[in-house]
Structure formats: C-alpha cells, structure tokens
C-alpha cells in the first residue's frame, strides 16, 4: 500500500549513487526484501515505470531478491521457518525466538553504464 513512497525513495538512492560515480545511465537495481517487509513487487514495478521516466534510470530492470523468514529459538538453538498458524519452535515448543532473516529492506547494488 505504501509502494509509491518506497519507489520514490528507491529512485532517490539510485540516482544519488549513480551521480557520485558520474554514470550516464542506470540499467538495473538489486533489491533485497525480507518476506516480512510487506512490499508488493508488481506494485513497485508499476510505480517505477512511471517515476523513473525522464531520469537516467528510465527502463532500468528491477531485480527482487526475497529472503525467507528464519527464526532462531533462544531456548534450544533450532533454526526454523515459522508456520502460518503457529510461530513456536517446532523442536521444543518455545516462544523465545530471534528473527535471523526475513526483515531485509534495502537496495544492495545498481548496474550503471559509464
């Protein structure tokens, strides 16, 4: 639902890094999104096509890398992917977990043409 704001931010970061390298064109963006970072790929792509128009990033390909949620049980050390109906540890039943991955929300790299 907030993909427009996210996409605008994405464009701002990409342009800033490309300009710092004096690049002429941005051809690709590599996004890393955890499964728990409520972002819809199609929606970002939709806004991207509109707002990148007229910039050096026009037509750049968006590469999405989704990272699954992995929890680490603090009681028994088991790493597991939470079930949708119950987040407790499948090994010991504990609820004392730490999120290992799944909350990523960053731009990892961009491809540019010199």
């Amino acid at each position: 639902m907030h993909e427009l704001a996210v996409t605008e931010s994405l464009l701002e970061i990409a342009l800033r890094h490309a300009q710092a390298q004096k690049s002429r064109r941005i051809t690709g963006l590599y996004l890393v999104l955890g499964q728990w970072s409520s972002i819809v790929d199609d929606s970002v792509q939709f806004y991207w096509d509109i707002i990148s128009d007229g910039t050096i990033a026009k037509g750049a390909t968006l590469h999405f890398r989704r990272v699954p949620v992995v929890l680490t049980c603090q009681d028994c050390g088991k790493e597991y992917q939470p079930a949708s109906e119950d987040f407790a540890c499948p090994q010991c039943g504990g609820t004392n977990a730490k999120v290992k991955t799944g909350e990523e929300f960053h731009l990892e790299a961009i491809d540019v043409d010199e």
């Binding site: 970061i13 961009i110 540019v112």
Partner: peptide
C-alpha cells in the same frame, strides 16, 4: 563500460 556499484542502503533511509 557497464559496472555494478554496491549500495547497501536501507530503502527508507531518507525518512529515517
């Protein structure tokens, strides 16, 4: 020459 630039920046860093 095509080139990949590492960024590693949180997407909402401006807001942060």
């Amino acid at each position: 020459m095509p080139q990949r630039i590492p960024v590693v920046e949180k997407i909402l860093s401006a807001n942060d």
